[in-house]
Design a protein around this nucleic acid. Structure first.
Lengths: 210, 210, 210, 210
DNA sequence: AATGAATGAGTATTCATTCAT
DNA sequence: GATGAATGAATACTCATTCAT
């Protein structure tokens, strides 16, 4: 019985994963309003199964967002741990996350998705953890003098989110253009830059407002 | 007769303008899929009136996009003519266009809107004219040495589009954050910046592909 | 003043006639549910003018039907007066009315039109007059021995209505096919025919039921 | 699995059949423009179900027409096989088809329906098969000398269509009138008839034009 | 549990009719 | 009077969600 239950769970888990993966992809391609049936089809299951796992669209959006944030967080931690300098870590996070944009995009682009995620504690937790990690990297970069002192973690997060929003696929010729844009932005973050920024540094905390 | 005809037209024109203005606003707030009725309500007319002017949603989207591009174009021209340096013109375009983001956003954010606009020659013409103007400004800025030589007009357009995409309202506290982001990007464009960019400069022509 | 009033009336009358003529044509082509605006366009007037003359679609349908019946009636009378035999008159009525099919069709084809006309006394009067004329012709034909005795005026009316319903235009190659069909039916009406018909002769009165 | 699949299909099929039957009836009563909801109600299903089976109104019209033609064809084949003479077969086809008028009517009466069916290969096939069957019967009747030699299958088809167009219900007192009309037409087709017909015989092929 | 059929509420669009010009 | 713009009710069609199999 335990065995069968376990096997069942494995099945169910696989199903769930397929659905989330399919949803991530389909959301990225067609926005958070795609017909549920399309997602189900992409996942290779019936709508009924989808609804068994996720009571409604919002739950599915939450699941996708949670997973996306978790992946980016893991990536950031890995980068911080493995790269020689904090600046290299920042570069790697932007670069890698390019491959994750589709994931994060959801949380950034759609007004509706934002509304939905606003109330989700688990997403909030991922987000906070991610922001904390980013904060550490940014501060380290400033300590090592590789990025200007007048930016806060929030500033960096916003800059990153701008680039991550755009979804050229990995094989899209437009990808290069966005890598260049990211590079220009990173150059803008370098300490050497001259013009003073308006207002005061935006912190991670500041972003919680929006 | 002419008088009455003219007066009638004036009325109709006012109505039409209200509709486009309302649509621009509502699209910005709720995306290109908002109920037509909501747009009509915002414009203070009945749905029937909206449909008399614009045979379907696509026509309305096109109208909003045309007008938006035209406004940004006018702005860019003005900036180029009035600002002392090309770099100042760039700064002004980004700054001003912030007030137009809602307009441009439509053309940038939604996959659906993109598809619709792809086939519209008038939008294409506005876009080309805008790109030409931007090209002139960028080249002048490079000639005056205020921005790095290894970026093309397409690079600048992409960077601008990244910032313009985000739609914090003028009274939104988040606005400052985006102005800072824009400033960082402009700093990244300054000649003084160090790291070489990957690939080759993206031209305005390159963007026509996408 | 009288002059101006008269001129006005003439104008209005012309307008009215144009509208009825256009409606007849458009009804024939597209059924009694065509958009009122299409009729107005065909008549070369604005919808407002159309509605000034005819308070609603039903009134317009009635007007078209009245005129159509009146024309067929006039035609039948002329045929009866001018043709040498009653049978020739029948032939002529069917033939001529071919040109009028569009007119009569309205009253025959659409369930909705039937309903509307059912309550119109003027249409009823035209119809009765037409039936009386046909009755005279049929009886004369039977008296002269040119059509079988076991048919009533109602039978003939139904047969005629069957052929008149079909609307091939005068320049339609299908017109010949329908003239042949009419000829076969007339042959069927000739006395020489053999098989006894079921039931009893249908009179003009019988048709008032439907 | 097969069992459950089959049972499910059976349910769906029953539903589909109910929808087509209801549509046939409702189309006959109120024309091809009746609200889809009315059809759904008549079929005892929700609109959604109707649209699941038939993507739009045209698909439903096609389905009704296909089935109607198929039924008339089956009837004609049966008549040809069972009746002692070809003429009897003709009589039976007209008589039986009276019960099917509602079916055929759709394809004959509405301009819109015609347009829709014009492009449907399956309807065209049914129509061709029906015409072939009728052709055989007509030629046999001419061979046995029971109908005049100067008519083609197309002539007969048109005559039949004239009678079949009219839709008195089986319990309608007007039914007798139409049976009489059909009888007169059949008499007109008998060889004994006298007057020469205009033009040349209309064949089945000729009708394909329209 | 999985499936996909059924439901009906939500939205786009059309068109009869009214009314300001 | 004539015009055509405005209105909103009617109807087609879609899709989230539920439920029988």
């Amino acid at each position: 019985m335990t065995a069968s239950e376990t096997r069942l769970r494995a099945d169910a888990q696989r199903n769930r994963d397929q659905i989330v993966a399919a949803a991530r992809q389909v959301f990225a391609e067609a926005g958070p309003d795609v017909p549920m049936e399309e997602i189900a089809r992409a996942a290779g299951v019936g709508v009924g199964t989808l609804y068994r796992r996720f009571p409604d669209r919002e739950a599915l959006i939450r699941a996708v967002a949670r997973e996306s944030f978790a992946q980016v967080l893991a990536d950031a931690r890995e980068a911080a741990a493995e790269e020689p300098t904090a600046f290299d870590a920042l570069v790697r996070v932007v670069g890698r996350s390019h491959q994750l944009q589709a994931s994060v995009q959801l949380a950034l682009v759609s007004e509706r998705a934002k509304e939905i995620l606003k109330g989700d504690p688990e997403t909030a937790a991922s987000r906070d953890a991610l922001m904390a990690e980013l904060d550490a990297i940014v501060k380290a970069a400033q300590a090592e003098g590789s990025i200007r002192a007048d930016v806060g973690t929030g500033d960096v997060a916003i800059l990153f989110s701008l680039v991550l929003r755009q979804p050229p696929a990995v094989d899209d010729p437009a990808l290069l253009a966005f890598e260049r844009a990211a590079a220009v932005m990173l150059d803008g973050l370098r300490s050497s830059s001259g013009s003073p920024l308006p207002g005061r540094p935006i912190t991670g905390e500041d972003l919680r407002i929006s």
